[in-house]
Amino acid sequence: MKMRLIVTLVGATILLTLASLWMGQQAYSWFPPEASAESKLIDDLFSFLVALGTFIFLGVTGTLAYSVLFYRAGRYDYSDGPPIEGNVTLEIVWTAIPIALVIWIAGYSYQVYEQMDVRGPMEMVHLHMPETMPAAYAQPLETGGLPSAEIAVQAKQWAWIFHYPGPGGQDVTSTELHLPVDHRIKLALTSDDVLHGFYVPAFRLKQDIIPNKTIDFEFTPTRIGTYRLRDSQYSGTYFAAMQADVVVESPVDYQAWLADASSRVPSPAYNRASFEYNRSAEQSVVRGWATVPPAPPPVVNYAPKQAPDSPPA
């Protein structure tokens, strides 16, 4: 009897472990592409949590399901179950194991956070955490001959504007964020009006932007492609429309793009919030309640779109 119980438990544990490991592998496919060094770290951590979570979930619900299937009272069986009121050993075990797990998970998460070293808001309160670990993915920005200056990100209701230091020191503006691949990027995040959130799902990175503050934010894009930047902190009426594209390209392409952009004459970019606001003002379609009017379309050197239907630049 005892032997059979042990075999059953061991068998169940092996099955659970296999299922959990499989789920942990599946977890990678639930994300957008891994486009930054940080995303790799986060995906590994998440996969680990999924595996662990699957084990616990299946363990508990499996026991519940087993009870529901095999411990049903008969139709006319009005007797009670065994009056077991507790088991000290068991209770100590299921307190100690979660404590150990929590310390493990939190420690692992701490390590990942340190490695990411996105740094952002720490400067805001002038309290520096001692750097216990070097940022694994930082590369000196000078390689490839790129300027080591920051890109300024300006958020407002409801537009993103990116400011690059141009070759001649002028302010080159764009409504599309262009970044060189495999370089540590430094952003300076600012907001003109309310809270916004800088969020690129493919980078797995997010940071709220607070008006009247400049928040430094760092990361390393590692994959060439075009990704979405979304506002992640609710910012009012046209919140959902506040999106922009992030183009990660080779350093050569990046330099070429910056040179091209700086030579362009600033022109108004297409802005969805402003477009929708004006359209509803003109056509007297069903209007909702009064809203804060969107800022006029930003006038920038480089705009991927001038009109809603214009082809991509």
Partner: peptide, 29 residues
């Protein structure tokens, strides 16, 4: 992060206790 995760310990105790309560009982659904 540490304080938040520590909440899972007392809640975990409850979940395990409920599971142990119905295990071996005479269930009526």
């Amino acid at each position: 992060m540490f304080t938040t995760m520590s909440i899972s310990v007392p809640t975990g105790i409850k979940i395990f206790a409920w599971t142990a309560t119905i295990f071996g009982g005479k269930l009526r659904l």
